[in-house]
Simulated assay, not measured.
Amino acid sequence: MASRASSEAAAPGFSVPIPALPKLGRTWYRRGALYWLCRARTTVFIVLVMAMFSLFALSLYAGVRDLLPSTVRVMCDGVQVAASVVTLVWGWVAQRRGHRVALLNPPTPSQTLQAKRDHNRRVPGRIAMGRGLVLLAAPVMPAFAAWIVGWLAAWLTVREYPSEVGARRWLEEHATGT
C-alpha cells in the first residue's frame, strides 16, 4: 500500500483543527465506529444504486431484445454476457489504477471540497445529457452497467480514500509548521 492508514498516523500535539471531508466529516481521523457507520451507509446506498441501475439496464435491453428474431436473441445474449464480464473486470481495474495514482498525489482537504462542489455543479447537466444517450445505448446497457458496477465495487472496497491520505498529509505538514 502506498500509505499508512489514517488510524496509524501519530496523534499530533498541536491546535490545528482536523479538517472535515465530504461524507466522512472528521471521523476519518480516528476511524472509530462512526467512521465505519459512514462507510457502511455509503456502501448500502451505492449497492442500492447499482442494483437499480442494473435492473434498469436489463429492462432496457429486454425491450430491445424483444424486437429481434429468436435466433438472433441467443447470439445477442451470449455477446451481452461476455461483454458484461469483460467490462465488469475493466471497470474494477480502471478504478484500482485510478486509486493507486490518486494515492501518489492525494488532494488536500480544500481541493477535496472544491472537487465535491464542482461535481455537484456538473451533475444536473450530465443527467439531462444522459437521458438522450440512454436510448441510443440501449443495446449495450448491460455491459455499461457492468462497467459501472465494477468501478463502484472497487471504489467501495478500498482501505482508505485518497482524500483521507491527503488530509492526513496536510495535517502532518501543518503540525510541523511548514
Results as ranks from 00 to 15, higher is better:
A20F: 13
M75S: 13
L152R: 10
A10S: 14
P162K: 00
H99D: 03
V140E: 01
R168C: 05
I127F: 15
G25D: 05
A5S: 12
G125L: 06
L58G: 04
A10F: 09
V140L: 02
A57T: 01
V16Q: 10
V86R: 02
A153N: 04
A145M: 08
A10R: 14
L67F: 08
V86K: 04
F45T: 12
T42P: 05
R4H: 07
V81N: 13
T43W: 06
S7D: 14
Y35P: 01
R26H: 11
V72R: 08
L48Q: 14
G130T: 11
G78F: 06
V74W: 11
A128P: 13
I127D: 14
M129T: 15
L156K: 03
T71A: 11
R96M: 09
I127W: 15
V44Q: 12
A175W: 01
T176A: 08
Y35V: 04
P106T: 07
A128Y: 15
E164F: 00
L113Y: 11
W92L: 12
G132C: 11
C38S: 13
G177S: 08
L113E: 04
S84H: 06
E173Y: 05
W28A: 03
R26W: 05
S70K: 07
I18C: 07
A82R: 11
A137M: 13
A82V: 12
P19S: 06
T157K: 11
L60P: 08
A10E: 15
W147P: 02
V165M: 05
A57C: 06
A40M: 12
S3D: 00
V89H: 11
R169V: 09
F56C: 08
L136W: 10
G78Y: 03
I18F: 04
P124Q: 11
L24S: 00
A154T: 10
G130K: 13
L135P: 04
R126D: 13
S110D: 14
S3M: 04
M129F: 15
S3C: 05
I18A: 01
S59R: 09
M52L: 15
T43K: 06
V165D: 00
P124C: 10
Y29Q: 02
